[in-house]
Amino acid sequence: MTALRFKEVHLKGGAAERGYQQGKALKSEIAQALAYYKALFNLPDSVLQAQLGPFRQVIEQFKPAYMEEMAAIAQGAGLSADDILLLNARSELLNNLSVSECTTVYNQPTGLLAQNWDWSKALEPLISVLHIEQAQGPRITTLTEPGMLAKVGMNSAGLAVSLNILKSATRLQGLPVHLFLRAVLECESLAQVKALLKTVAVGKASHVLVADAQGEFLSIEFAADKHYLLASDHHGIVIHSNHYLADTQLNTQEAFPSTYERYRRAAEILSYDRSDRGVQSVLLDQSEGLASICRPYSPSALANFGEVGTVFSVLMKPAKKTISIRPGCKADTPFYQLQL
Rank of each mutant, 00 (worst) to 15 (best):
M1C: 03
R5Y: 01
K7L: 12
E8M: 13
V9L: 14
K12W: 12
A16T: 15
E17L: 07
R18I: 03
G23K: 04
K24M: 11
E29P: 05
I30Q: 01
A33W: 04
Y36M: 04
P44K: 07
P44F: 09
D45M: 04
P54M: 02
P54Y: 06
Q61I: 04
M67T: 14
M67E: 08
M67P: 00
A77G: 01
G78F: 09
L79K: 08
L79F: 02
L85M: 07
R90A: 04
L94A: 10
N95D: 06
E101Q: 10
N116H: 02
W117T: 15
W119K: 00
A122C: 00
A122I: 11
P125C: 13
V129T: 10
V129I: 15
L130P: 06
G137S: 04
G137D: 05
T141Y: 03
T142F: 02
K151M: 14
G153E: 11
G153R: 06
S156K: 03
V161M: 07
S162A: 15
L166R: 13
L166T: 14
L175V: 15
P176Q: 11
H178P: 00
R182L: 10
V184K: 02
L185W: 02
E188I: 08
A191N: 08
K198I: 05
A201R: 05
V208Y: 02
V210N: 00
A211Q: 04
F217M: 09
L218D: 13
L218P: 11
A223K: 10
A223R: 03
K226S: 15
H234D: 15
H234L: 05
N242I: 11
Y244E: 06
Y244W: 07
Y244F: 15
L245G: 08
F256V: 07
F256A: 12
F256R: 14
S258G: 05
Y260F: 10
E261Y: 02
Y263D: 12
Y272Q: 14
Q280L: 02
R295L: 13
P299K: 04
A301E: 13
A301R: 09
A303Q: 09
N304Q: 14
T310A: 01
K320L: 14
T322K: 01
P327C: 05
G328L: 06
G328C: 06
L338H: 04
L340F: 09
